[in-house]
């Protein structure tokens, strides 16, 4: 068996040295527990999420992906029976510190949901709503600029620039989802959380959103929950596998999908969970 250990990849390469990992860390979670009443939904999860990187959360449904994702911008605060313990820091600042305003936090950490949920208002209003309530602009022309640039970044501008006054709900599903992404971008977030953003979209619309995610990575830290392993493999650089509330394994996406270390990850990605 000793010859076998002559394999090329060493443990060090697998977890790159701590110093560089720390430098790139945008979000760090330490021993996080989440309870819904008596249900222990997230168990002792610690993870560093890298800046300007797409991190995918995968795992069987009910394993706690959405719950953990919602911890990252305190969306769980809105659920009465939900209790979060442990420390979650963005840029080394504890986001559960009483001094932190959850509304401000959610501007910094935007979220895109499974079902596109544009407001029943015009395309323009959908995108300008955030900057307006956060008081980010003073003049109408500034607002126009933000709307245009957000729609451009979301890859929707060319398709809607001539009908900014028509209702957002009139767009196709894929366009609505990109509108929601534009809405999230409009408040200049640093992190964008996406919970199964493509599960209601057809393959072409999905491809457009995936393309967009890849472009956004340059400027944002992105965390995406997806039930499609192929999607995780396509869009992410890091993948975290959750199972029964535990974080089983996290690593470079290419390693997770070709050579996972844990038997549970292996069984899941190869379609062997019964």
């Amino acid at each position: 068996m000793s010859e076998v250990s002559g394999a090329i990849r060493t443990a060090d390469e697998f977890e790159p040295n701590k110093a560089t990992a720390m430098e790139n860390t945008k979000i760090s979670a330490d021993k996080v527990q989440v309870y819904y009443g008596d249900t222990h939904a997230i168990k002792d999860v610690s993870i560093n999420i890298r800046a300007q990187t797409v991190t995918a959360f995968i795992g069987p449904s009910g394993c706690g992906k959405s719950t953990f994702l919602r911890c990252l911008n305190r969306m769980n605060d809105t659920i009465d029976i939900c209790r979060v313990e442990g420390r979650i820091a963005i840029d080394d600042e504890d986001i559960y510190d009483p001094k932190v305003d959850p509304v401000q936090l959610r501007a910094k950490v935007g979220m895109v949901f499974q079902k596109p949920n544009p407001f029943p208002k015009s395309i323009y209003d959908n995108v300008s709503y955030g900057p307006r309530i956060h008081g980010l602009v003073r003049r109408k022309s500034e607002l126009d600029d933000i709307v245009a640039s957000s729609l451009q970044k979301a890859g929707l501008w060319e398709e809607v620039k001539d009908r900014l006054d028509s209702p957002g709900t009139g767009l196709s599903g894929g366009q609505q989802q990109r509108l929601c992404i534009a809405r999230a971008i409009a408040v200049s977030p640093e992190v964008i959380l996406m919970d199964e953003p493509c599960s209601a979209l057809d393959p072409i619309a999905t491809a457009k959103v995936e393309e967009l995610i890849d472009e956004l990575r340059e400027n944002y830290t992105i965390v995406i929950v997806t039930h499609s392993m192929q999607q995780a493999a396509r869009v992410s650089q890091r993948t975290a596998f959750f199972h029964l509330g535990n974080l089983v394994e996290v690593g470079d996406t290419q390693d997770i999908f070709t050579n996972p270390r844990d038997k549970r990850t292996q069984d899941y990605i190869t379609g062997r969970f019964g």
């Binding site: 392993m229 070709t258 292996q266």
Partner: peptide, 10 residues
Amino acid sequence: RRQPMGQDLR
């Protein structure tokens, strides 16, 4: 058809 992963892919 299956988009094999992990050991299956290998």
